[in-house]
Design a protein around this nucleic acid. Sequence first.
DNA 1: ATTACGATCATCT
DNA 2: GATGATCGTAATC
Length: 192
Amino acid sequence: MGLPTTVAPALLGKLLIRRQRGRELRARIVETEAYLGQNDAAAHAAAGLTARTAALFGPPGRAYIYLIYGMHWCLNVSTLPDGQAGGVLFRAAGDWSGPGRLTRGLDIGAGLNGWDLTRPGPLFLADDGYLPASIAVTARVGIRKAAQLPYRYFIEGEAAVSRPRGPVLSRFHPIAPERRGRVYSGIPCHGH
DNA sequence: ATTACGATCATCT
DNA sequence: GATGATCGTAATC
């Protein structure tokens, strides 16, 4: 668990695994966005606790899934302790560019809202040790409020990163866990 | 290359 | 009744 702005880049390179009757799909996360609670007008949680956003205010590591524009499901994971709102939007993974195509490809809908993504099940996160070479930071896309905040992260060179990409505001190179010391900033992922 | 628009509906005011 | 954390297509530069 941790701040959305810390967890969002930490999730890049991790796997989203979807298990359903007899098949397993896995997609490497290549693009994420951070959404805070208060002080972030673009966040659904900014308006306070409602029935829709309850998962964002719940325990960390839970799926927050909502319908946008009447046709696309968007997948997020809550990252802050119970009672505090904050999440990370999965914008692209595997070959699926864009949050709507991602959920369509993995057959994710409202039925998985609130699901614990940190333990193996129908939908969960996993870490196979992959380390992105270079992560770029840009402004978030598709929003009107607080659109200038540098809360979008993607793995450079990945074709599935959604458009428009916008100017890269900064970039960094992740450090391997064994060289990072004891500080771990991501939410728990199932190891391999 | 960039900009505009319509589809479609759960949620909230 | 208005509003989207989108996407594909079409029009225009």
